[in-house]
Design a protein around this nucleic acid. Structure first.
Length: 798
RNA sequence: GCACGUGUGGCGGAAUUGGUAGACGCACUAGACUUAGGAUCUAGCGGUUAAUUCCAUGGGGGUUCGAGUCCCUUCACGUGCACCA
């Protein structure tokens, strides 16, 4: 039997019969399974893709057999740096490179037999798609959710390009290894921080795995605290600090402003000016890396003093880069006795340290380190004797009463920097007019196409390559008709992937990004699978995007993704990440050619815990080939019969139940072991009925769809994909007779056979009669006998 | 540093609510059938012992009739965020 031929045959059958078409508005129950659509990179499909796609494919196939209307789509996330770099390197237009890569990916997916509904395929780079990404950007703009601001970005001086934070991890350019520098650039921003609280609350309406929710929560980074205003001595000025411990205000012995703080210039005294300016200059020249890698605190005194609002003490104001301008208010009150960073700084600059929390457990010695634990307030005036919570509440009352502070919630999450100085992204549909300022394009003029020229390499100026294409840049103002220029930055790669799952619900719509009718029918993404690396940012961006669309009435739910699961990576057989340089890459095409798609699929499901990383093993793969061969061989035992064999009835019913459960609980590896056990049971028999065989084939079909269809056809049944999933009878999942263990004082001393009708008394009798158990009971007093039905007997003796 | 995750045979990994630890598979050993086997079958396979004897789920302690599973503590590895006030 030639598996490659069989696979081709069934793949053609499914194509011709549109076996996996999802029907909008069907009476069947809708079920939407989504896998993260890939970057069609030049390297082709990775065995890691095969793992997650097979898992979701199996779920989709099972759900279809169970009578549900399954939406299981596939598309391409083809904008972004990798595609652009590939194009630059190979000197072809990214559009062409993407086209070729998509072709490769799609063919590979076809040979693996994934049951995608290919009618819904699109790429984020299709004008018909990015038209709507642009349209949605305009909605953000029109609802005052998009604005232009000058912010620091990561800039690689060698590659002459802006890098994302991910590409610039550790302050080093991922591609060339150069030091990344900070550059101020004018950028489009989305007001994502306005949604911080809603993004947090919305998690309650999802079924994300706890660790996924936690990732979202951490990223949003909510902290509840207070703002406190400090008057500057001798100035009619004050500054505000953010603190989570306003109750320690009596212990504040100095304040720190970030070097970028706008008050620095105003309050710095003449004799400190030189020093302060020098320090600020120094900070500006430091890269992000240098600013964080050197943990030794630096800073300078401004010469000015702040007035502590609770005791009117005058405390010095410093500037230091350990205070971040981007978090809170860019200014802090420092309580060196109870904060290790402030402690370090105070020690270095000889600033007094006042203890305001009692360290009853003597956890810290203030001569050496700060005490960061909890304690009762001391040296704190009206807070003395109170605990943390009482102290905070009392202090908040005081601050509000005296109008010098208030309760305040802060979030780490910032607004979304939405501009990229790249060619290969969605053009931002904004036009700059000298007299009207920024003007949005008319929606009717969308899509704003990327120009069709081959000038896509980075410029020396830090502008997008689009800036060089004057024909494209020069336009007229939609408002006044005067000469104007287009925005030349493009959108980040996260844009297109923030709403693609909505488009799959209505992919050919040319009137709207997706109709409300279709979105209401499909309801939500029931099951979304992706890599752990995307569970923080991509998911957050997508949720933000959806919540915004919901708020302007364009999608039916505030959360459009219900369950989110993530898979582990497939590692090389050396347990390291697969990479060309290590030579440990496995190409799925080679495996398909040599062992068949079904074997690869079975192996990838069987290889290990789905959520855990797992090394590749060709030996184990061969074991899966043997399993499939065994299933083929079982055909020789098949005799006529439309009933299950009596003695296989229980194992069959049990298997159906377990497989159904495991398939929906990420237990793919145990689905396979259940099937292996079932096949082994069949193998022990001389003969099995057609019905026995068919149920095995049907249960295995979602994971190994080709060979099971072929075998099923060969015994005269209609295709599995047109048939139904078997049901089980709960009654018949219980064995009549089972063997259980007998313990004496918790140690296993024997085994007994019991039937399901045995009473507790009968079980006790059998346990006491067991030979080895009797030996251990000699001359001992039985205290009690614990019988756990169907599990174990434990005899407690003295 | 903080947060989270993971530690079970030679290997990948099983073990609904605490209930026979090591399912299933790989690798390995011995044998059978074969011209041959990288096919198939049969038996074995955590360590230990005279012994269903004792020891074993990273280490130590605890709760329980009973702990891989719950609690405390400690170590190792992995991931994320990293001066977030």
């Amino acid at each position: 039997m030639n598996f490659n031929e069989i696979e081709k045959k069934w793949q053609n059958y499914w194509d011709e019969h549109e076996s996996f078409k999802a029907i909008d508005g069907s009476n069947k129950e809708p079920y939407y399974i989504l896998v993260e659509f890939p970057y069609p990179s030049g390297a082709g499909l990775h065995v890691g893709h095969v793992r997650s796609y097979t898992a979701q494919d199996a779920l989709a196939r099972m759900k279809r057999l169970q009578g549900e209307n399954v939406l299981f789509p596939m598309g391409w996330d083809a904008f972004g740096a990798p595609a652009e770099q590939y194009a630059i390197k190979n000197h072809i237009h990214p559009k062409e490179a993407v086209k070729a890569n998509i072709h490769t990916f799609k063919n590979q997916m076809k040979t693996l037999g994934f049951s995608f509904d290919w009618d819904r395929e699109f790429s984020t780079t299709d004008p018909e798609y990015y038209k709507w990404t642009q349209w949605q950007f305009l909605q953000f703009y029109k609802h005052n959710m998009a604005y232009k601001a000058t912010v620091p970005v990561n800039w690689c001086p060698n590659c002459k390009t802006v890098l994302s934070n991910e590409d610039a991890a550790g302050g080093v350019c991922e591609r060339c290894g150069s030091r990344v520098i900070q550059k101020n650039k004018s950028q489009w921003m989305l007001r994502m921080s306005d949604y911080a609280e809603d993004l947090l609350k919305g998690l309650d309406d999802t079924n994300f795995a706890p660790k996924v929710k936690l990732g979202q929560i951490n990223w949003i980074g909510k902290s509840i605290g207070a703002e406190v205003n400090f008057q500057v001595d001798g100035h009619n000025e004050y500054f505000t600090v953010f603190t989570t411990r306003c109750d320690t205000l009596f212990g504040a012995t100095y304040c720190v402003l970030a070097p970028e703080h706008k008050l620095v210039d105003v309050i710095t005294t003449e004799e400190h000016k030189k020093e302060v300016d020098a320090y600020i200059e120094e900070c500006l020249h430091k890269s992000e890396l240098e600013r964080t890698e050197n943990k030794e605190k630096t800073g300078v005194f401004t010469g000015a003093y702040a007035i502590n609002p609770v005791n009117n003490k005058h405390i010095p104001i410093y500037i230091s880069d350990y205070v971040l301008s981007s978090y809170g208010t860019g200014a802090i009150m420092a309580v060196p006795a109870h904060d290790s960073r402030d402690y370090e700084f105070a020690k270095k600059f000889n600033i007094p340290i006042i203890q305001v929390l009692e360290d009853t457990k003597h956890e810290a010695n203030l001569d050496v380190e700060a005490f960061e634990g909890d304690g009762i307030h001391i040296n704190s005036g009206f807070l003395d004797g109170l605990n943390k919570e009482e102290g905070i509440n009392k202090m908040l009352e005081y601050l509000e009463e005296h109008k010098c502070g208030k309760k305040k919630v802060n979030y780490k999450m910032r607004d979304w920097i939405f501009s990229r100085q790249r060619f290969w992204g969605e053009p931002i549909p904004m036009i700059y007019c000298k007299s009207c300022g920024w003007v949005p394009m008319d929606e009717s003029d969308l899509p704003l196409l990327l120009p069709d020229v081959a000038e896509y390499e980075p410029t020396d100026t830090g502008e997008s390559p689009l800036a060089k294409i004057t024909d494209w840049v020069n336009t007229t103002c939609p408002k006044c008709g005067a000469a104007a220029t287009r925005e030349t930055d493009t959108m980040p790669n996260w844009a297109g992937s923030s709403w693609y799952f909505l488009r799959f619900m209505d992919p050919h719509n040319d009137k709207e990004f997706a109709s409300m009718k279709n979105m209401k029918y499909w309801n939500k993404v029931n099951w979304y699978n992706g890599g752990m690396e995307h569970t923080a940012r991509h998911l957050l961006y997508a949720r933000f995007w959806v919540q915004f669309l919901y708020n302007i009435g364009l999608v039916p739910h505030k959360e459009m993704i219900d369950t989110r699961v993530s898979h582990g990576m497939v590692l090389g057989s050396d347990n390291g990440k697969m990479s060309k340089s290590k030579g440990n890459v496995i190409n799925p095409d080679d495996i398909v050619k040599e062992y068949g798609a079904d074997t690869l699929r079975v192996y990838e499901m069987f290889m290990g815990d789905y959520e855990q990383d797992c090394p590749w093993s060709t030996d184990s793969l061969k074991g899966c080939k043997r399993f499939i061969d065994k299933v083929i061989r079982l055909k020789d035992k098949v005799i006529e019969g439309e009933e299950y064999s009596k003695d296989l009835e229980v194992i069959i019913n049990k298997s159906i139940k377990k497989i159904e459960y495991d398939m929906t609980h990420l237990g793919y590896n145990t689905v396979i072991s259940t099937l292996m056990i079932l096949a082994n049971n069949y193998d022990e028999k001389e003969q099995i009925t057609k019905k026995d065989y068919q149920v095995l084939l049907t249960l295995l079909n979602p994971i190994a769809p080709h060979i099971t269809e072929e075998l099923n056809e060969s015994i005269g049944y209609k295709p599995i994909c047109e048939s139904t999933w078997p049901s089980y009878d709960e009654e018949k999942t219980i064995d009549h007779e089972i063997t259980i263990g007998v313990q004496v004082n918790g140690k296993l001393r024997g085994e007994i056979k019991i039937t399901k009708d045995d009473s507790e008394e009968q079980i006790k009798e059998k346990a006491l009669a067991s030979e080895n158990v009797k030996k251990h009971l000699e001359e001992k007093e039985i205290v009690k006998i614990i019988v756990i039905k169907g599990r174990i007997v434990n005899i407690v003796i003295k």
